[in-house]
Structures are given as C-alpha cells and as structure tokens.
C-alpha cells in the first residue's frame, strides 16, 4: 500500500474560553489515500469544520492544536513556516466552502480569481492564466466559458459559482481537496450535478478529497471511507458501505434512522411510519464529561457506559472501528 496523501494522527484542538481551555477535537486520526474520498459526518458542533480548518491551518485565533500531527505527502503541515504554508495552500491542498458567494471576491471577475491561483503558484503570465481559466471553466462544465470568464460572481447562479470555486480549487491539481458542505446551499438537481462533477474530476486528477457533509446520501455515493464525529470525537469509522449499511454506533444508527428516505414506486404507497428521533442535542463545548459523550442521548446506555471513560475505537471485522462499550451486544 502506498503512503496516504493526508495523514491525521491524534489531532486535538482546544478553544481558549473565558473559563480556560475547552476541548474541541479529541484524538482524531484518519488517512486519505490518493484518489480516495473520506467523508466526515456528524451534527453541527461535532468538529467537522474545525478538522478541515486545522488541516488548512485556518483555525480561528482562539483555537490551538494541542497535540497530534497532520502530514501532507509526508510534509508536516502543523510545523510549516508561513512561506511554506503559502506554497501548500491553493497549490497542494485547497478547500471549497459551503457558500460560494462569500468565498468569491465580488470585485474581481471569475477569470481573475481562477487566474490568480495560477499566477501565484505556477508563475503564469496574466494572458496565459486567463486562457487556462477558460479551460478550467470548460472542465467544470460552465457553458459559454469564453464569455463567463469575464463575469463577476453576482452575475452567476449559485450552482455556477460553486463550479467556479471547484475550478479555482482544482486549478493547480492539488493533492488534497477539502470540500466543506459544498452543496448545502444549492438546489437538489444542482447538488447532484456538482457531486457528479467532483467524482469525474477526481477520477481524472486522482486528488484525495475530504468531504464534510451531513448528507448521508452523498456519503454513500461519493465516499470510500467515513468518519462519524460526535462532540469532537470520532465514534465510528470505516469503509463507507460498511458504516452506512451496517452502522454499529447508536449515534450513527440514529442519524440514519432520523432521515426520511425517499420511497419510490409501489413503496411510496405505503403509509409513512413515525420518524425515529435522537432526543436532546449535542452537548455544548465545555459541558462534555470524560465518559462517552453520547451517553445522555443514547437509548442503549447501560451501567458500563456510566461507570467508564470514553470508549476507545474498537476494530471490528470489515475494517470498521466503533467507539461504544456495548456495540457487540446491541448490534443487530
């Protein structure tokens, strides 16, 4: 097996609050291989976006990495000096965000913005960069690319803006792409197109992708591996089909059960059952104890869960691992 493109080991991040440091991420480890997609799923406040920002070294001021390492192709991201970081970001790792309108500069044409990446990292002339930008707009399937290259972000629809973001992010053929909820702000038919596009481009560029999403359908379609985060800890991870089809952790199972799956054909004529719900909510930062963080919401919680610390990730066959004291008893 070749070395992974991205290797995150025992990553912990804490936030400086008014009452001292609070853990945001605890002991997170995962690898992403070339051409593979790793999905991070979980509710808001579970640490998905913080993981992405830590990898990009974009954590907000009050947040610090307290331990662990992040290696990109064997290079230490956390130890990189500012000049090194500039060379890394945009060139070897890049990121697309949820809201393309706020991530694009409204005062520059999209051609300038895609071209900027190429001028900075590849040293292209302005003219060559624009020419390349047109090519990239074609790659992300924007019609009339020759004209659109001179358009400003507000002149484009949401779907096209996200395509521009993808073009920008992939302009330097990065080794790693982080996609933070890339389609949440888009319409369903456009979402499906963007996911298809990401998949096609990945086949071609072999870019490793970290996909942050709460859409389990997207996970099943795009991801090779999944890590489910809860309250800053990874509670289940493994191959996507294993985790999706044979989820073991009560939280993962709860997440699956509370999404109404669209039923089609004859199944659509059956009466809908009542929706399973996970009671309560993700514990806020600072209110997380040493025991399993899901304990207060867990229907399967027993004495063992209350009396012991956070369960370690326990490897099960099929390559998955789950952090639950009782998973062997309760998995159907």
């Amino acid at each position: 097996m070749t070395a992974p493109v991205l290797s995150v080991r025992n990553l912990s991040v804490s936030m400086q609050g008014s009452n001292g440091a609070v853990a945001v991420l605890e002991n997170l480890s995962f690898d992403v291989a070339q051409g593979a997609t790793m999905a991070l799923v979980g509710e808001s406040g579970c640490g998905k976006s913080m993981t992405a920002l830590a990898i990009m070294r974009l954590l907000p001021e009050d947040f610090t990495v307290t331990s662990g390492s992040i290696m990109l192709d064997g290079e230490d991201v956390l130890g990189a000096a500012p000049a090194q970081l500039r060379a890394l970001r945009g060139n070897r790792m890049s990121m697309i965000f949820q809201e393309p309108m706020t991530a694009l500069n409204p005062l520059y044409t999209v051609g300038d913005q895609i071209g900027e990446v190429l001028r900075q990292h590849r040293g292209l002339s302005r003219r060559d960069a624009t020419e390349q930008a047109i090519n990239f707009l074609k790659v992300v399937q924007i019609p009339a690319a020759g004209q659109r290259v001179r358009a400003y972000p507000h002149q484009l629809s949401g779907g096209m803006r996200q395509r521009v973001m993808i073009a920008m992010a992939l302009a330097c053929r990065p080794r790693l792409l982080i996609a933070d909820e890339p389609t949440t702000a888009l319409d369903a038919t456009v979402q499906a197109q963007i996911f298809d596009l990401l998949g096609e481009l990945q086949d071609e560029t072999r870019t490793a992708i970290v996909l942050i999403t709460h859409d389990l359908g997207a996970v099943a379609e795009l991801a090779d591996d999944v890590a489910v985060l809860y309250a800053g800890r990874c509670i289940e991870k493994g191959p996507a089909d294993q985790v999706i089809l044979h989820a073991r952790h009560p939280y993962t199972r709860g997440l699956m059960a509370c999404v109404p799956q669209l039923k089609l054909g004859p199944a659509a004529r059956t009466a809908p059952h009542s929706l399973d719900e996970i009671p309560g909510m993700v514990p806020p930062l600072g209110a997380r104890g040493a025991e399993c963080a899901f304990l207060p919401r867990c229907a399967f919680a027993g004495e063992v869960c209350r009396s012991r610390q956070q369960p370690p990730l326990d490897a099960v066959d099929s390559g998955a691992a789950v952090s639950c004291w009782r998973h062997r008893e309760i998995t159907p």
Binding site: P143, S157, G158, G159, M160, D187, A188, T189, V190, Q191, A192, Q193, D196, G217, A220, E221, Q261, L262, L264
Partner: peptide, 25 residues
C-alpha cells in the same frame, strides 16, 4: 428530475439520474 436527484443511493438512483436528471440551473 427532482426525484432522480433525491433518490436513495444505489443502482436505481444511477439509472434515474442518467435518464431524468436535467442539466444546468
């Protein structure tokens, strides 16, 4: 098209998307 985009993952979804999902915005 809307249903194709929202169909549960699997072979059916792939077929629906190929035949019915519209392009563009």
């Amino acid at each position: 098209s809307l249903i194709a985009a929202a169909a549960p993952p699997g072979a059916l979804r792939e077929r629906l998307k190929k035949n019915y999902l519209v392009k563009g915005d």
